[in-house]
């Protein structure tokens, strides 16, 4: 057991008589908007929302906070494994790596062998995807940042922005701001015909 296991949700154990469940910081707000939840890999995921099909024609807001995230520091040789969904170079000696949650432990261990530090950020960060033709317009209501990928302030919150093509624009933010950021994004999107959609509304792909 590593000293920093208490940072990693994937080190939870189901064999101690408890059934640990993981919730995104957007979970309650999504529940209040009628989301249908499913348990996947220990996460309570909002799988779908009523009426979400129309929203995709404008802009759909999808919670991807259940993805695995690792912050890699220093420089090192990294073979881009098939499990890596996104590798965002924040600066020359710091990167953010995204994977499917079930792959995060292995990815983190591999990265730890190649880099001075591989810190689990799955718990620290939330991810909100803006998907659809109006995604850029909604982003323009939240931030001045426009050439992606970028890091900076999004609605008074320090965040990273990734351009994921068909998977939309991903806002990666400190999870404690999740509820607030979700409200702001919905407020910006709804007058344009946008709204929440579940995780099943998009198929998350490697770029």
């Amino acid at each position: 057991m590593s000293t920093l296991d208490f940072l990693s949700p994937d080190r939870a154990r189901a064999d101690l008589g408890f059934a640990p469940l993981l919730r995104s910081s957007l979970e309650r707000a999504q529940r209040e908007r009628g989301a249908t939840f499913e348990e996947r890999d220990g996460w309570l995921v909002a799988a779908s929302f009523p009426g979400e099909a129309e929203r995709l024609a404008s802009v759909a807001l999808v919670d991807l906070s259940h993805l695995g995230k690792v912050e890699v520091r220093g420089t090192g040789e990294a073979e881009q494994s098939r499990d890596v969904l996104a590798w965002y170079r924040i600066r020359p000696d710091r990167s953010l790596v995204l994977t499917a949650y079930r792959d995060v432990f292995l990815t983190r261990s591999t990265l730890a062998r190649h880099f001075p530090l591989a810190l689990d950020q799955t718990a620290a960060l939330g991810i909100l995807a803006l998907v659809g033709p109006q995604a850029a317009r909604v982003l323009g209501r939240l931030t001045h940042l426009c050439e992606l990928p970028a890091s900076g302030m999004v609605s008074h919150v320090p965040a990273h922005l990734l351009d994921r093509d068909a998977n939309g624009i991903w806002i990666v933010f400190p999870q404690e701001y999740g509820h607030y950021l979700y409200e702001v994004a919905l407020d910006a999107a709804e007058p344009l015909g946008g709204g929440p959609a579940g995780a099943d509304a998009i198929e998350v792909r490697r770029q």
Partner: peptide, 14 residues
């Protein structure tokens, strides 16, 4: 107790 934040409600309830 310090633990990963997404487990918050689970631990609180327990």
């Amino acid at each position: 107790l310090h633990f990963p934040s997404p487990h918050g409600e689970h631990v609180w309830d327990a």
